[in-house]
Design a protein around this nucleic acid. Structure first.
Lengths: 184, 184
DNA sequence: ATGCCCATTTGATTTATGTCACAAAATCAT
DNA sequence: ATGATTTTGTGACATAAATCAAATGGGCAT
């Protein structure tokens, strides 16, 4: 079920590593709007989105600001939770979804005894780190139009599966401006 | 010399780990304006800033955009270089500096054979990742004045040791606007 | 010290984008 | 289906911050 995800990671996890991980992994189904992780809490779990979509948002001046969207085969979770800090964001499903849950407290000790698991997790974090650098690079000092066209080019799925209201705050612009940019 | 830096990391590196690392570490002195890492290149090194200051910048529409500043006891380098990608940024010294250089190609293989080294490097990357999340969180949808006052509160050193011209592009505002914000 | 080159400030003007108000369209629940 | 609620689009206007243009100030090299 999750082969496509794990195959991105090299060297691939051996049976031994997978055997150690399995007791900490569960398959879950949740409906649209279900909150995987709540703001200001430490959930203790990270998730692999097998099927479906999710968003991460936080409140600022009473408004929901969306920080990312995720789809099939992407890892979703709170890096702050992973580091035993409360999440700043709420992670909510945008569609009915199938997920794998990973018990962070169960898996962390395995990193010391199994180098494959350690490498795997560190690769996930390393890729997220590169993603954050890209996001900063492609938004800093860029106009609303540039950010909009970049997102359209790089992640067209977002426009097919996420309401425009959510996309606007993700791009750091008002709903009205996004609407006008789309109207060309 | 670098104790203060290494002490932030737990568990502390043992003699064994340090012995493996040492052949890949050199002490260096370089003058102000020296370029540690050049844009579009893969330097193969990361650095610990023992004494001095550095900035990272990239060109955008012919203008230098500063992405970060670093001071004593901070690691400086290109995450993209670490991942065998060309750096987008040039890293330049802002003051005459003392550094430790780390040979990335020499150290990476050690991560497979020594878990301490692996943990150490992953902790450095993990902390950088949290820093990037914070930076996005504290700049997204915030006004020039909010970003300015946040930087003043969180990293006052920057205003003592970095020219305002550089700080402006780091904050994502024009030099004139920064000047006016300072004038209150 | 002197002069030159940047860095910084200040003023006038322009522009992109936000805000407010409402209309139209789409989605949802009964 | 029907109305109700939410999402998206449009217009008028306000405003933060950019841009352009000088003027002033500071630091560095001779």
């Amino acid at each position: 079920m999750v082969d496509a995800f794990f195959e991105r990671y090299r060297p691939r996890l051996t049976e031994t590593a997978i055997g150690l991980l399995m007791p900490n992994v569960k398959v879950l189904h949740h409906p649209k709007k279900y909150e995987l992780i709540k703001a200001n809490h430490n959930s203790g779990y990270a998730y692999l989105l097998v099927k479906g979509a999710a968003r991460s948002y936080y409140l600022h001046n009473g408004m929901e600001i969306n920080s990312w969207f995720a789809f099939e085969n992407e890892m979703v979770g709170s890096l702050r939770n992973y580091n035993n800090l409360p999440s700043r964001e709420t992670i909510e499903l945008l569609e009915d979804s199938t997920l794998l849950s990973f018990n962070i407290n169960g898996i962390k000790p395995l990193m010391a005894e199994n180098i494959e698991i350690s490498n795997f997790i560190n690769q996930v974090i390393g890729e997220y780190c590169l993603y954050l650098e890209d996001k900063l690079y492609y938004t800093h000092l860029r106009s609303a139009r540039e950010r909009y066209t970049a997102l359209l080019a790089q992640e067209p799925n977002v426009f097919r599966r996420v309401p425009l209201t959510y996309i606007a705050s993700f791009l750091g612009i008002s709903r009205e401006t996004l609407s006008r940019l789309r109207a060309k």
